[in-house]
């Protein structure tokens, strides 16, 4: 009798636990749903549809106008400020910015991480110590002098100035990859080195293929970091040609009239900033969720 009631109790408990998880999913997803819904709503219907779960007259005009596919007059008629906006260009900029930084940074940091883990050379541990100490310096601190340097070198609003501080390395990526390389048994590459492929060959033919997991982890987290980056691109890449999505969204909000922001256009632009990561999540979601693991740092 008592065991039966206990089981019933646990079944109710499980039901409640699932209800909480489902509620968490709803709270997570709803703002995104609302974003898409608003983007599909004509600006004129914003008030009438303010809490309709689906717009009464769904339209793609908001996407067309933020992508610069309509004339200024039509865009203004649809609720825009009429200013030239081209989110297609900004999206491309964001994709290139993220991809270049992620690929180059992972590549260079893997090489250095390997050197710090395996190669013997003078000052190795001292250098690595300084590198780890740099983890303690918050980005805003180096951002101010980096800004003045990029400005003085005349690299404002250039792609080079935009990627320069993060394209070669971050201390964390070197640290993370070095810790992983340390966990690979030495014997694995020792044989290859003696076979005459050298350190370089051993790194490329043995270590890199073995470390696909951690390399993808660093690559993906760097991609996400760069995709979300705002302050640096805002400072050095505000110009039309180097403007990334996050900066463009901020500029777009500032351009809209003070009384009521151009919400339908903003939500269309926001949707563009979500779509690529959604694709990333669909194709690499499993890998991504598995890689979020502190105990991976060994």
């Amino acid at each position: 009798m008592s065991s039966m009631s206990a089981r019933r109790g646990s079944r109710i408990g499980r039901g409640m636990a699932w209800a909480i998880l489902i509620a968490a999913v709803l709270v997570t997803v709803f703002p995104f749903y609302w974003m898409v819904r608003t983007a599909l709503t004509p600006a004129g219907d914003l008030f009438a549809d303010s809490h309709a779960l689906w717009p009464h007259h769904p339209t793609l005009i908001n996407f067309k106008r933020v992508l610069g596919m309509t004339s200024a007059e039509r865009a203004r008629a649809a609720g825009g400020s009429g200013a030239q906006i081209n989110f297609l260009w900004y999206t491309l900029n964001s994709i290139i910015y993220s991809a270049v930084i992620a690929i180059a940074q992972t590549f260079f940091c893997a090489m250095a991480g390997y050197a710090f883990a395996r190669l013997r050379f003078p000052f190795r541990d001292a250098l690595f110590g300084i590198l780890v100490a740099a983890l303690m310096v918050p980005p805003i601190f180096t951002l101010l002098p980096n800004f003045t340097m990029v400005k003085n070198l005349g690299l404002m609003n250039t792609f080079f100035g935009l990627v320069a501080p993060s394209v070669l390395m971050t201390p964390f990526a070197v640290f993370f990859l070095r810790q992983f390389f340390l966990s690979i048994p030495k014997e694995v590459e020792e044989a290859a080195v003696l076979d005459g492929v050298g350190r370089w060959g051993a790194f490329w033919r043995i270590i890199v293929p073995m470390s696909r997991g951690p390399l993808i982890t660093i690559g993906l987290t760097t991609t996400v970091w760069a995709w979300k980056d705002y302050l640096w691109p805002l400072l050095v890449g505000r110009g039309e040609h180097t403007r990334v999505l996050t900066v463009a969204l901020g500029v777009f909000l500032q351009q809209s009239p003070n009384t009521q922001p151009d919400w339908t256009g903003l939500m269309a632009g926001s949707t563009l900033s979500v779509l690529p990561v959604l694709v990333l999540l669909i194709f690499l979601g499993k890998r991504l969720v598995q890689s979020l693991n502190f105990s991976g740092i060994k």
Partner: peptide, 17 residues
């Protein structure tokens, strides 16, 4: 993966939403 979605989105977008 679903619970991770908001983390993947720029803070700027989160702010606007």
């Amino acid at each position: 993966a679903t619970l991770l979605l908001p983390w993947l989105v720029p803070n700027v977008t989160v702010g606007l939403l």
